[in-house]
């Protein structure tokens, strides 16, 4: 069990190291750098060289990679080329904002999705199932920026309950973000729920037809207890991986949704960094997102272990 966790951790570390190399390599392979982006198309001659020298860009790529990765190892993500500030400072607040958004969406979305999925499974092919399944297919098919725009139209423009876009600075305390965070959070939660819900529904239908559920019924176990104690843990097993994948998707979705709502999170920062060819910043954000992704999968594996005694005692 502990051996298994250590193995997974080592694997996660290896994945992150690979991500480091890949991210550095890909950004390096792109034509142009921060100086050409900064100085414009006609950047040449001494101005360009000075700019490059200032930012150590004249050093060989390998050497830069070594310095950078050594910094990452010590928790220093480097310095933004465009903004001339430590990346750690730039990222900290925005990371907090995005985490609040993502966690909020997950905390609302996942339990709701599980409950609705179970409800749809138990009322299979009847009205509640039709409504829930139909709704989830609808939420799955339309892209998240359309959902976002739709929500803005209804709740911000028509009803005027929430602001349409965020105008607060990234460093504002969380409490000031609260009215702004609601709409992006709902958008994220909606799309995420659809996938999880459908998975929970189908695996719950399978489990409710299994021998041990029939046995629990014939043992006189009350209905709600059969559903939540006997059936749900087994039904959650296939759903957990979907949840992990969905959260991973959420990381990509967050970039788009933050952009739509002008939310001061890591996604908006990343898009700006790409515009600016601010390679260290892009690298740092890509690495953070990859780390979150790996962490989610690790948590999903651990959750499967917790739910499935077969996996736990296999070795």
């Amino acid at each position: 069990m502990i051996k298994l966790i250590l193995q997974r951790l080592a694997l996660a570390f290896l994945t992150l190291a690979t991500v480091c190399v890949l991210v550095f390599g890909v950004t390096e392979a792109l034509p142009g750098d921060v100086c050409t982006a900064f100085l414009g198309r006609d950047a040449q001659g001494t101005r360009l060289e000075n700019c490059r020298q200032q930012r150590n860009l004249d050093q060989p790529a390998l050497q830069r990679f070594a310095t950078w990765s050594a910094g990452v190892f010590q928790g220093d993500l480097g310095t933004s080329l465009k903004r001339d500030k430590p990346i750690n400072d730039l990222v900290a607040n925005r990371m907090r904002n995005t985490a609040a958004l993502g966690l909020g969406a997950a905390l609302i979305g996942i339990p709701m999705a599980i409950l609705l999925g179970v409800l749809a499974a138990l009322r299979r092919d009847r009205t509640p199932d039709m409504v829930i399944s139909g709704g989830s297919i609808f939420a799955m098919t339309i892209p998240e920026f359309v959902t976002a725009t739709l929500l803005i139209y209804i709740f911000a423009i028509q009803l005027q309950w929430f602001p349409a876009i965020t105008t607060v600075r990234h460093s504002a305390p969380l409490s000031e973000l609260i009215p702004n965070i609601i709409l992006p959070m709902v958008t994220l939660a909606l799309v995420m729920m659809a996938h999880i819900l459908r998975m929970v529904r189908s695996s719950m239908i399978d489990v409710m037809a299994s021998d041990f559920v029939q046995m629990a019924r014939l043992k006189g176990v009350p209905y709600w207890r059969i559903v939540f104690i006997h059936a749900l843990p087994s039904a959650m097993l296939p759903a957990i991986n979907i949840i992990a994948l969905t959260i991973a998707w959420l990381l990509g979705g967050v970039v788009i949704i933050e952009q739509v709502f002008n939310y001061p999170g890591i996604g908006t920062l990343m898009i700006r960094a790409i515009y600016d060819r601010d390679l260290p910043l892009v690298q740092a954000i890509a690495l953070i997102l990859a780390a979150v992704y790996v962490l989610c999968n690790l948590l999903a594996d651990l959750a499967s272990l917790a739910l499935n005694p077969r996996l736990r005692s296999a070795r």
Binding site: D211, H230, P309
Partner: peptide, 26 residues
């Protein structure tokens, strides 16, 4: 009444115990 009868006064011993015991419960 049925629930208290099943597993109480009338007990079942199933065909495939391996699949009839809930796998996630001790």
């Amino acid at each position: 009444k049925l629930a208290s009868l099943r597993g109480g006064k009338v007990g079942l011993i199933p065909q495939n115990a391996g699949q009839s015991l809930t796998p996630t419960m001790k």
